[in-house]
């Protein structure tokens, strides 16, 4: 992705430009990343240590791992997009001689990399530390869960980024973005509580496909929200309309709808929601 972005700017200084932009992203994301990683790391170990049976440990660590990575990716997205649009520094970047596509693209990629790195690190290090405490937890024996974890993180990241972009650019506070995002996070997370059942029942691929649909839908939404085209303002009020901005229940729908007036995202969102419904239906069948 970034190679095409660089190719767009014929500026001979583009190398320096990219380095400085990356430096800025790194400086902005690192403190948050470090904080959540530390909390997640020790939190997971603590939880694992307190669980009674080895099976219980395995189960609880796995589910908590999903929650922490979701929190990590959501926070990175919100810090990366909402804080900049809220403080209007995104406008400052737009005033620089570079294409808005470059700004948004670099931001999206930088955040996604930080998300994936954090997820991977947690997924690999927690079992190591757990084994130091005397119980084995090895996700590498199950390639699907790790893949699920990574795709799930990306999904949360893209959707959170879309929400953060939309609400941040309307001048809403970071807290509001977080508050609006929490119900969705829980809803998304709830499926992970049953993840072992699906894995045992070979439903993992269904979940993976479903998450992948969500990732594409979320990605398209963010892409539509970033003012990629030069001369398109960041003002989401124009897109969403003032009525939409106050309804918290419809936040996801409005974001996804506004994120793509085009058909692409709509199709993917529909598929994603249909898959979720199917999953719920299967889960209730499975339980009965």
């Amino acid at each position: 992705m970034s190679s095409t972005l660089i190719a767009h700017d014929s500026n001979p200084r583009s190398n320096v430009m990219w380095k400085r932009l990356l430096w800025k992203e790194r400086r902005e994301l690192t403190p948050v990343w470090m904080a959540i990683m530390l909390i997640g790391f020790f939190g997971l170990v603590m939880i694992a240590f307190q669980a009674s049976s080895p099976e219980g440990k395995k189960e609880i660590v796995r589910t908590c791992l999903y929650s922490f990575t979701a929190i990590l990716s959501a926070t990175l997205a919100i810090v990366g997009f909402a804080s900049e649009s809220e403080n209007e520094t995104l406008g400052r970047l737009q005033n620089l001689p570079l294409h808005p596509r470059s700004v948004g693209g670099l931001k999206l990629v930088a955040g996604a990399i930080a998300t994936l790195a954090g997820t991977l690190l947690l997924a690999l290090l927690v079992p190591v530390l757990c084994s130091a405490f005397g119980f084995s937890l090895n996700p590498s024996q199950e390639p699907l869960p790790l893949l699920l974890l990574l795709v799930g993180s990306l999904l949360v990241y893209f959707i959170a980024a879309a929400i953060a972009m939309a609400y941040g650019s309307m001048g809403k506070s970071l807290f509001l973005v977080v508050a609006l995002f929490l119900p969705f996070l829980f809803w998304l997370d709830s499926s992970h509580w049953h993840i072992t059942e699906y894995l045992d029942g070979n439903f993992g691929f269904v979940l993976l496909i479903q998450l992948a649909l969500g990732v594409v839908a979320g990605l398209i939404s963010v892409v539509r929200l970033v003012p990629w085209v030069e001369g398109r303002g960041l003002n989401m009020r124009k897109v969403l309309g003032p009525a939409e901005t106050t309804s918290s229940a419809g936040h996801l729908a409005s974001v996804s709808a506004s994120g793509a007036a085009s058909g692409g995202a709509k199709i993917f969102w529909t598929c994603f929601f249909a898959a979720r419904l199917l999953q719920v239906a299967f889960a209730s069948l499975y339980a009965s």
């Binding site: 200084r13 430009m17 400085r20 209007e88 520094t89 400052r92 620089l96 570079l98």
Partner: peptide
């Protein structure tokens, strides 16, 4: 934008950067 100098109406600057850092950061584009 790379030729012209622009002082926007409400200059939004990165509060966490120092004066020197924002100069260095912006210098990368000029």
């Amino acid at each position: 934008r790379s030729a012209v100098g622009y002082v926007p109406e409400a200059p939004a600057l990165y509060g966490w950067m120092t004066v020197g850092e924002i100069g260095w950061f912006t210098a990368g584009f000029y």
